Simulated scan of single mutants.
Amino acid sequence: MASSSIIVIGASAGGVGALRFLAAALPNTFPAPVLVVLHIGAHRSELPELLNSAGPLPAKHAEDGETIHPGRIYVAPPDRHMIVADGRLRLLRGPKENCARPAIDPLFRSAAEHYGTDALGVILTGNLNDGTLGLLEIKRRGGIAIAQAPDDAAYPDMPRSAAAHVALDYCPPLAEMPKLLIELVNGKDGKDPAMPISSSQPDSGQSPELTDARTFERPLTVTCPECGGALKKFEVGSIIKFGCHIGHSYTAEIMAGAQFEEMEKVMRAAVRFLNERAEFCLQMADHTRSAEHALSADWHAASRQALDRAYKLRDLVEQNWLTPESVRRVASASNGSAPLAE
C-alpha cells in the first residue's frame, strides 16, 4: 500500500489547529501524498503557510493539472473543489455541496474512484456532516475510513456523523492519528469488508396539511435553496441526501439549515419592502396634504399599515424556530447529556 496510497483529509470548524498538529507530527520521509480540504469558502487562505511552519512536509495550494507527489501536502484553494484523477489534481468551480466550496465529499469520492483500496479518508473536527458520504464511498470501494474520536474533537459533529453512518476502521483521538497514518501507509491496514450502497427515489404521495384551519396542499417538490431547482431525495446507506439537476447537493441536516437561511433572507427582504412602502406612502401623504386632505389621510393610513406589518413580520422572523439542531439540543439537555458544541 505504501507506494500508491493517498490520504485525503476533511476538516471544518477547529480544523486549523488539528491540521497543524498532524503536519507537525508526520516525518519528512512520509511516503504518501496528503490532500486537505478545509471549509474556507471564497475567503483568502493561509493554511499552506501555517502547515509549512508547523512541520517538515512541504504544503501548498493545489494547482489545476499538477502531478501528485508523495511526501507533500496539497490544500484545496478558496472557492474551488479539489479532486484527483489519473494521478493529477483538478480544481473545479462546480456547484457547492453541503453549502461549501471547497467541499470534502468531492475529494473523497474522487479518491475512492481513482485509488480504490489505496485511498485513506480522514474526518476531523467540524460542524454538521460534510465528508460522511465521501467517506462512505471510500469504505464501499475498500479503502480505509478514519474519523477523529468525537469526544476528542473541538467540534464533534462531523466525526460523530461519520461514526454513525460509516463502519469506521479507526476512530482515534488526534494525538494517536500521526502514528496510525504512518503505520497504515506502510501496509498495516486492518480494513473491514467494503459496504454496499443503495438509493431510492422520493415518495411522490401528496396529502394536505392543516395550518390554522386552512388547507395547504403539499408542494409537488422541494426546491434547492441555492438555485431554486427541483430536488430529488436519495438514500445513501443510512444518510438522506438531496440533489438538484444543477449539481448542488445537501445532506438533510445541511438542507434544513440552508432552507432556513433562504427563508429568513426572503422574509427580511419583505420587511425591507414594507418599510420602503411605508416611506413612499408617507412622502405621498406629505405631497398631497395641501391639495387634498382626504387623499393625504389615505396615504398616511397606508403608511401606518405597511409599517405595522413590517414590525409584525420582523417579530415573526426573530422568533425561535425549530431546527433539527435545536430539537436535538433540547433532547440532549432533557436526557442529561451535553449539548453539541457550536
Rank of each mutant, 00 (worst) to 15 (best):
F242N: 00
S334K: 12
H165E: 09
L168C: 01
A302G: 03
A119K: 09
L124T: 07
Q283E: 15
R101T: 02
D189A: 09
I146N: 06
E137D: 08
H114I: 01
T29I: 13
E113K: 15
G243D: 04
Y74A: 04
G131C: 02
R109C: 11
T215K: 14
S161D: 03
A258L: 00
M267G: 15
G257D: 15
I123A: 06
H245N: 09
R44K: 06
D192H: 11
A42G: 12
G205T: 15
A32H: 12
E113D: 12
A100E: 03
A213G: 11
Q259D: 01
K233R: 10
A294K: 03
I144G: 07
P31V: 02
T251M: 02
E46T: 11
S249K: 00
R304Y: 13
G229V: 00
T323R: 10
P339M: 05
A331S: 08
D169A: 02
C244A: 02
F21H: 13
L340I: 10
R90F: 10
I240T: 14
R329M: 07
H39M: 05
E46C: 04
N275I: 02
F260E: 08
P77Y: 08
K233I: 05
P339K: 07
P339N: 05
V317S: 02
M263G: 04
K233T: 03
Y170K: 05
E63W: 01
D315Q: 15
G228K: 03
V236L: 14
G121W: 12
C171N: 14
N320V: 15
E63V: 10
I68E: 01
V271Y: 04
K233H: 11
K312A: 14
H245L: 13
P95T: 03
R80M: 10
M284D: 03
L307A: 15
P102A: 03
F280H: 13
H245R: 08
S200D: 08
N129A: 10
A341W: 06
P77E: 04
H81T: 05
R141I: 03
K96C: 02
C224D: 00
T223D: 03
G126C: 07
L307D: 13
A163E: 07
L184W: 02
M255H: 00
M1G: 10
A269Y: 12
A278N: 04
N129D: 15
G257K: 07
L133Q: 13
H287A: 12
R109H: 14
L282C: 04
S198T: 10
V122Y: 14
T211P: 01
D152A: 15
G121P: 07
N335R: 14
F21S: 13
I123E: 02
S199V: 11
F234D: 10
R141L: 15
S337R: 15
A162K: 01
A285Q: 09
R20S: 14
H43I: 00
V317N: 04
